[in-house]
């Protein structure tokens, strides 16, 4: 892996963070929805005013959660089929990063829910599925941490299972789903044009952040494996107790 990948992505991500923060609070409109009723204009129930600014962190984190889980799932499939260690390293590293992104999504989403619905949590379909996905990721991390080196195939199965839940979370939003949407018809591309540059920059920033974290963690996973191998060598040589 290129040794400059982590510093480059982290530096660009840091610049992106600064720009994003500035744009969120200076160039994006305060989200207010209107609806008309016989010539009168009323505030819509989806008007979130200043609180909608949570959107610019919450949704890109959800996108990165999806990207990390998909990467982990695909790497696990490749590891299960080809038995090449590097795929398992990628799967483990991205699963841990996904667990962090998932935690951010759930926490920021819960805070947003308090504003929008006046409740910290509701058992809405997308929220429940997201919680299940995050618990699966936590399970994966715990299995890798405590079940020993031989748990790699079991953990790979869990990563594939986590990946399978992604389309359900994304497409589960139907007419009866109360989860706020990125755009009026549930599509990010149809959101207010003044919101788009900030939103896309935010997605790019967190993509760089994800790549930097995953690359750093892959390096860490390889170092952990190196430690295990050195210990085994030490035991074989009689150096270590």
């Amino acid at each position: 892996m290129n040794r400059y990948l982590v510093p480059i992505c982290a530096s660009l991500g840091a610049i992106g963070f600064v720009l994003t923060i500035w744009m969120i609070f200076n160039s994006t409109p305060t989200q207010v929805d209107y609806q008309t009723d016989e010539g009168h204009v009323f505030l819509s129930g989806s008007s979130l005013f200043f609180n909608q600014k949570i959107f610019y962190y919450h949704v890109p984190h959800a996108f990165m959660l999806f990207a990390a889980v998909a990467t982990s799932g695909i790497a696990s499939i490749l590891f299960l089929t080809k038995r090449v260690q590097k795929w398992d390293d990628i799967a483990l590293a991205t699963a841990e990063v996904a667990a962090v992104f998932g935690a951010v999504v759930l926490v920021t989403g819960s805070i947003w829910a308090k504003v929008a619905w006046d409740r910290w949590w509701i058992w809405e379909k997308r929220l429940t599925m997201s919680l299940l996905l995050w618990l699966t990721l936590i399970g994966y991390v715990l299995v890798r941490r405590f079940a020993g080196a031989s748990a790699d195939r079991l953990a790979s199965g869990m990563a594939v299972f986590a990946m399978i839940t992604l389309p359900f979370i994304y497409f589960m939003v139907g007419a009866d789903d109360s989860h706020p949407q990125a755009g009026p018809d549930g599509n990010v591309a149809t959101q207010d044009p003044r919101m788009r540059p900030t939103f896309y920059l935010s997605v790019l920033t967190f993509l760089l952040w994800f790549v930097a974290l995953a690359a750093a963690r892959i390096r860490g996973v390889r170092m952990e494996r190196e430690v295990r191998e050195l210990r085994e060598r030490g035991l074989d040589a009689g150096v270590l107790a």
Partner: peptide
């Protein structure tokens, strides 16, 4: 809530 979410 915005500060809370960003801080989290």
């Amino acid at each position: 809530h915005v500060i809370l979410a960003y801080a989290a």
